Computed example of a mutant assay.
Amino acid sequence: MFRYKVSKMGCGGCIKSVTRAVQGVEPGASVEVDLAIKLVTVSGAVGSPGRIAQAIAAAGYPAEPLLAAA
């Protein structure tokens, strides 16, 4: 599971764009977005957190990978 702080999200359209970006590089991933705290959680992804962050950023939403909780 990977988590990202995505500060530029503000609406349902943003959620759709970020979800599409993640699933473009990780088609089987589950994407959960908490718009209130600007948090994206990606589960089931096998790629690297950096690759997913790059895809989100390429969609126009700079993403900061967060350390996973132990």
Rank of each mutant, 00 (worst) to 15 (best):
V40Q: 06
V42P: 01
A29F: 01
T41F: 01
G12K: 04
R20M: 15
G50K: 14
G60W: 03
A36Y: 11
I56E: 11
V25H: 02
I52G: 00
S7G: 06
L67P: 12
S17L: 05
S43P: 00
R51I: 03
M9T: 06
R51Y: 10
K16C: 01
G50V: 05
E32I: 00
R3N: 04
V40L: 10
A55E: 12
Y4H: 01
S48Y: 09
V22R: 01
A69E: 10
A70T: 15
L39Q: 08
K38Q: 09
F2D: 13
P49W: 15
A29W: 03
M9S: 11
V42Q: 13
A36Q: 15
K38H: 14
G44Q: 04
A45N: 08
K8Q: 13
G13V: 07
A45L: 03
L39I: 08
Q54H: 11
G12C: 04
A53L: 14
M1I: 14
G44K: 02
C14Q: 04
G47E: 02
I52N: 03
A69M: 01
I37N: 11
L67C: 05
A57I: 05
A69V: 12
A55V: 11
S43N: 14
Q54Y: 02
V25F: 08
I52F: 01
P49D: 14
I52W: 02
R20K: 07
G10L: 00
A59T: 07
S43F: 08
G50S: 12
V22E: 07
E64D: 12
M9H: 07
K5T: 12
P65E: 15
S7L: 14
Y61R: 05
G50R: 03
V33G: 01
